[in-house]
């Protein structure tokens, strides 16, 4: 079973990202998929977390994810206020929206670290929601790059289903660009 934790701020789409990731895994034939937010005070700007479980068979767990295989950091400011490595399994992967190098992060000696400039990709494609760059769709491209449990093709398809027409297509392309531009320390 693959367990994923997303860190973001309210309005950045961490909850939608979790739902789309689980939906893509379902499309790839995984029977056990589950997505849920951390049910705290969800409001624009507040730190939020969301979770995904992906398995071949029914997921029976109903508790939160405490030991993720993958952590996705949508908002780099989260790194200053939250220990994003908390509970991450050995050999776990931390994917960060950042222009830095993977080795710039002090935990890169303990974990695989992947970086992608999701904000830059969104801004260059004019993918803005209320003036804020959409981070969830490019970050999903990076997740597809880092795990074999979900394909880029399915990520792009669930994005197109979520937002019909041009916007969906542009977001799907952003995911693809992020997939290609994701850098890893090892």
């Amino acid at each position: 079973m693959l367990e994923v934790r997303f860190h973001g701020r309210g309005g950045q789409g961490a909850v939608t990202a979790a739902n789309l990731l689980a939906g893509a895994a379902l499309r790839d034939g995984k029977k056990g998929v589950q997505a849920f937010p951390h049910f705290g005070g969800e409001r624009r700007g507040a730190p939020v977390a969301s979770f995904v479980r992906i398995a071949d068979d029914e997921v029976r767990l109903r508790s939160r994810v405490y030991h993720p295989d993958i952590v996705v950091v949508m908002d780099r400011q989260t790194l200053e206020s939250t220990d994003v490595t908390a509970g991450v399994k050995e050999g776990g992967i931390i994917i960060i929206n950042s222009r830095k190098k993977p080795t710039d992060f002090d935990f890169s000696d303990r974990f695989r670290v992947a970086v992608v400039d999701a904000a830059g990709i969104s801004i260059s494609r004019n993918l803005l929601v209320s003036g804020i760059p959409a981070l969830n769709t490019p970050m999903l491209g990076a997740v597809a790059r880092m795990t074999e449990d979900v394909s880029l093709e399915s990520i792009m398809e669930v994005i197109r289903q979520q937002w019909k027409g041009k916007i969906g297509e542009a977001n799907a392309e952003a995911a693809k660009e992020a997939y290609e531009k994701t850098e890893v320390n090892r």
Partner: peptide, 12 residues
């Protein structure tokens, strides 16, 4: 059924 852990959890 359970608040949030079932009511607001995406499941097939």
């Amino acid at each position: 059924y359970s608040a949030f852990t079932i009511s607001h959890t995406m499941m097939p």
